[in-house]
Simulated scan of single mutants.
Amino acid sequence: MAESTDDRRAYRTIERVRAADQIMEDLRDRILRGELPHGSRFPADRDLAERYGVSVATVREAVRALAAMGLVRVRHGSGSFVTVRSETLIAVSMASVIQLEGSPATDVMEILGILYSHAAGLAARQATDEEVASLRAAAERLAELDDLDQAMKDLLHFLRQLSTLSRNPLLAAMCAFLGEVQVELAIELSERRLLPLREVAGALYPDRIAVVEALEARDADRAVRTTRAFHDHALELINSSPTARQIRISDPSYTRLISSLMSTKLASITR
């Protein structure tokens, strides 16, 4: 692996005690500093073993830990590659916390409402006219819900675009992950016949348009209010649906459902 000598630290010999952990931390720091950029081929295990002065088995243990964090993807037969992206790191961290704490769906949705409202307020100030026009087009595609699968994809696109217009990468990444969780939870409830997803999605069309109109007016306070109203209306429709007596989103069964979704997402993120 070619390296410049000016801005790269020499690989140091690692002490035998907890060598795999020390190697993992050193390689993680190199990845996060950009010495090993996203998409680049990761150094071969034997090369790293020689540079760190440890066995190949020790290096492989460190690489497995990096893969579990979503920083490296091991492709059998073609080597390992760096897969560091801010969205991946945030998603792994948030999914782990949600699963570890046993967070109920109510907590996830409450946080999401706050994040999207803040994103909309920023977007009202930051987005260009062309970007707002594109957001309106995304919202208007949800006027017809003939194909529910496509509608859910369009909804995710609308939500992702709204958060991206905030010009805040950290906020956008958090919204993107939690937005996917919310939509996947809705789909799961629909498949269990506990949520009339088509009716709920259709009833929220005016709320989405209201958010766009606030951005078009460049009214940040209004954008915050309409986005929060959009989010609250969604929860109200879920709770007032004909199956509301069967649904209790804060019920332990829904906490387990969130945990199951997190397990699936962690597997997909780090695969």
Rank of each mutant, 00 (worst) to 15 (best):
73 R>M: 03
25 E>S: 15
84 V>S: 14
75 R>Q: 12
62 A>T: 02
34 G>M: 02
12 R>A: 15
23 I>W: 04
43 P>M: 00
65 A>S: 12
77 G>T: 02
82 V>R: 04
21 D>G: 07
31 I>N: 03
47 D>H: 15
51 R>Q: 15
66 L>P: 02
31 I>H: 04
7 D>G: 07
54 V>M: 01
86 S>D: 12
10 A>D: 13
48 L>K: 08
8 R>F: 13
33 R>C: 08
61 E>D: 14
48 L>V: 07
18 R>E: 10
18 R>A: 14
78 S>H: 11
22 Q>S: 11
56 V>C: 06
37 P>N: 06
76 H>K: 11
48 L>D: 06
46 R>H: 11
12 R>K: 13
52 Y>W: 04
41 R>I: 11
19 A>T: 03
88 T>M: 09
27 L>F: 05
71 L>D: 09
59 V>C: 02
87 E>P: 01
16 R>Y: 13
14 I>E: 00
47 D>W: 15
57 A>S: 12
86 S>Y: 13
24 M>Q: 15
51 R>D: 15
35 E>T: 04
74 V>D: 02
35 E>S: 05
18 R>M: 08
31 I>E: 08
53 G>C: 03
25 E>M: 13
32 L>Y: 06
26 D>E: 04
40 S>W: 04
30 R>H: 06
28 R>G: 06
21 D>F: 09
82 V>W: 03
27 L>A: 03
61 E>T: 14
27 L>S: 03
60 R>L: 07
83 T>C: 09
77 G>D: 01
15 E>I: 10
22 Q>W: 09
77 G>P: 01
39 G>T: 08
67 A>G: 11
25 E>Q: 15
72 V>R: 05
82 V>H: 04
49 A>H: 00
45 D>S: 15
76 H>A: 14
58 T>Y: 04
62 A>Y: 04
21 D>M: 07
14 I>A: 02
13 T>M: 13
32 L>S: 08
43 P>T: 00
13 T>Q: 13
63 V>K: 00
7 D>S: 13
87 E>Q: 12
25 E>G: 09
6 D>A: 12
